[in-house]
Simulated assay, not measured.
Amino acid sequence: MSKRLTKEQRNTIKKCIKLGWSNASIASDVGTTPEAVNYYREKKLGKPRGQYNKTGKPAAKVTVAPAHIKNQTMRAIGKLQGPRILTFDIETLPLESYTWGTFDQNVGLNQIKTDWAALSIAAKWLGDDEVWYEDTRGKATIRDDKDMIAKLCALLDEADIVVGQNVKKFDLRKIRARAMMHGLPPFREPLVQDTMLMARSVGSFTSNKLEYLSKNLTDAPKSAHAKFPGFELWLGVMQGNQEAWEEMREYNIQDVIATEKLYLALRPWVRQHPNVAHYYDDNQRRCPRCGSVNLHNNGTTFRGVSEYHAYTCADCGGHSRSRFTLNTRDKRKALVTTI
């Protein structure tokens, strides 16, 4: 180690290790290196790291505790600054039903053999390197998704903002449905940033699909799951093919990484974004999109009959304005408006 850990750092590391945090997450929060945390973990505490590997694949049994408790702990000790932003994606299993054809079928309820269910879930906190992933591979049946849904509901309950591709129309509605079917309590509804709707509001892209947007706007394109193309991937999973399961895991995790990067690319351009400055316990002037204090004066801007200070964020590049008018009392009296 290049620097001795202070008593406060050691105590914080102990608490975080008990919660299952990774070396990288602990290091970023206590202000040291992952190597120093790993040394303290193994040499002083005798607890080798075994929670995650670098790809997000669980190396041991994964629980929701690290992500769920992390924000509460950091808030309690006064270190959490900014909103808790969660990007997530779910994959689902199809209905199994009886039909007499392959085109334009109207399936009645009594023709459904097996209902749909969640197959896998990946989720990531903004600012954290790790992706939480879980699937139903080890369950009695692959449609037993209750525990997995409960864990995601706990994450959603802790999130201030959730991010996802088509998350409003698909993922959140599916999660609510499965949670109710399992008798789970409602989670606290977070604010939602749907990257598909964000892209649609920003500009006229050729396509608003994740495949197109992530390829052209980020360095993390959506996975093509080429080994099991199209429905072959879901068919392989339902048949118990372990290679298909691994490809599903990689596909699900990559979707979350691609979606988060797409969100960050779109965020400076979006006008209807939650004001993240609310989530900081200070009175500093901050960018309403990313929370940065690196705002530069950019003259003034006019809205309606009022003039405001204009700012540009040096970190995300987004533009913003002050909330209070610069108009003098005499100016306000003199201005008239159209009818």
Rank of each mutant, 00 (worst) to 15 (best):
M181Q: 13
C316Q: 02
N71D: 09
S22M: 15
N252V: 03
I69N: 09
V37H: 06
L335M: 06
Q81S: 14
E130V: 14
N106W: 12
Y263C: 14
P83A: 13
N106S: 03
S28H: 13
V237I: 10
R173E: 09
L210C: 02
C316A: 00
V305W: 06
T87V: 11
F324G: 00
P190Y: 05
A117S: 15
V276Q: 00
V37Y: 03
R249H: 09
D219Q: 05
R49V: 08
I112C: 01
D157K: 07
T63K: 01
F205E: 04
W234G: 03
Y212T: 08
H225M: 14
T195P: 00
G183V: 10
A226W: 06
G183M: 08
G236E: 04
A24Q: 11
L210P: 01
M148F: 03
P58Q: 08
I17S: 08
K14Q: 13
L262T: 08
K168R: 15
R49F: 15
R249M: 13
G183C: 06
P83V: 07
K79E: 11
E307S: 13
K54T: 07
R289S: 14
Q254P: 01
L235R: 14
L156A: 04
K333T: 11
S214R: 04
S214P: 01
D330K: 14
S120E: 02
